[in-house]
Amino acid sequence: MKILMRGNEAMAEAAIRAGCRCYFCYPITPQGELVEYMARHLPRHGGVFLQAESEVAAINMVYGAAAAGVRTMTSSSSPGISLKMEGISYLAGARLPAVIVNVMRAGPGLGNIAPAQGDYFQATKGGGHGDYRLIVLAPSTAQEAAELVMLAFDLSDRYRVPAMVLADGMLGQMMEPVELPEPIPPEKIPEKPWALTGAKGRSPNVVSSFDLDPYRFREVLRALWQTYREIERNEVRWEEYQVEDAELLLVAYGTMGRICRTVVRKARKEGLRVGLFRPITLWPFPYEPLRKLAEKIPVLLTVELSAGQMWEDVRLAVEGRAKTPFYGELGGVVPTPDEILSEVKKHVRD
């Protein structure tokens, strides 16, 4: 059964169905509906909804709940995510699973509340301090947003790596029909023998990202990076659309990926052989599949709601095998399919 929902609501309901039982938040636009939905629905499932005094407090509450072994989530939008970065680095360092939703808006600074994709670097290249990675999932529809929230909990628990769902204001607030995923039965959630449950009948568990001895800490990080390499091997996800005979490949994620689907259809109607490559995992980034396509498609046009952030990963993937022009919009402006199409025409042969 399909239900008409906003992306924000779909992500909230999916979190509950994934077994999230502690949700900590701080109000910010454009993710308000997610907060509101959780406030109404999570307590009915026996969960904890708590509006914290700040983003910093909220992420540290997540840190506590995750350490106690509970599936936990926080959500925010760009400026709030900046504040959460301290806690995210600690989550990564302490190997705690947690889900963070970023419904991106335009920045830097206070910017505005219009949809943007300017937090790509922050999400995929660090953001917080230290040598770590986040699993970053980028949905392009409300349906996919719900599915990726479920997946984020699953991957985060499996690898003990925090996961971020990177959406944007358009995706968060647009209403569309969603077929909600089935709830995960509590017994299907992996056990967490490392969690803080009281040292009864076992030696004490310690959750920490701290080790004063560089040689010991190096081993901790080596293990962490082994896990990252495993994630890179197993969890790369992307979508290809009309790539087989493409002479130009659009590369776009999230809302921009969705708009570019329309661009492909429009271009095809005009006889232009255009395809779309849409990364779903922004980290791990689908370098290999994109590289393979670059060997046969001469032009890869990256389109983003930013000045070109994912573009750097595209160029890393392509390594000169094809032309890699860029088209982007700034400040919360969303280009129309026709605007993108005229950009396409500059690069494709008539």
Partner: peptide, 8 residues
């Protein structure tokens, strides 16, 4: 000899 967590 208790469970412990290190906080930011």
């Amino acid at each position: 000899r208790c469970d412990f967590v290190q906080a930011a």
